[in-house]
């Protein structure tokens, strides 16, 4: 199997977006939870902010991360000619 520059470029971009989305995941999960006591003093529509994030906010971010990744990678597949076509 021969990899072209285009393929290598595709993989580099994939790694970049993976790292980017993973760092959002990390911040929303671990950084937020680490500072939960400090963030609890902020009132967010009735919830303490850290409670809101742990119970709902982080979950919404997770769904968005995965949705964005699927859309972004679809575009990247097509641009770099590695997509599976309409009928896989």
């Amino acid at each position: 199997m021969q990899l072209t520059d285009q393929h290598r470029d595709y993989w580099r971009k994939n790694l970049r977006i993976t790292a980017f989305l993973l760092s959002i995941w990390f911040i929303v999960t671990f950084v937020m939870a680490y500072f939960a006591r400090e963030l609890a003093t902020i009132n967010f529509f009735g919830w303490p902010f850290s409670f809101y994030m742990a119970a709902q906010g982080s979950l919404i971010v997770y769904v968005l991360i995965i949705g964005f990744y699927a859309v972004y990678m679809r575009k990247l597949d097509i641009e770099h000619g590695v997509d599976e076509g309409e009928e896989a």
Partner: peptide, 24 residues
């Protein structure tokens, strides 16, 4: 209370890892 939310986050956030590292 709040401490129980570890299960809510843990059992959803894992799907980010599934999506980014494994499923495709």
């Amino acid at each position: 209370g709040f401490d129980g939310l570890a299960f809510i986050m843990g059992w959803t956030g894992g799907y980010c890892l599934v999506a980014l590292f494994l499923a495709p």
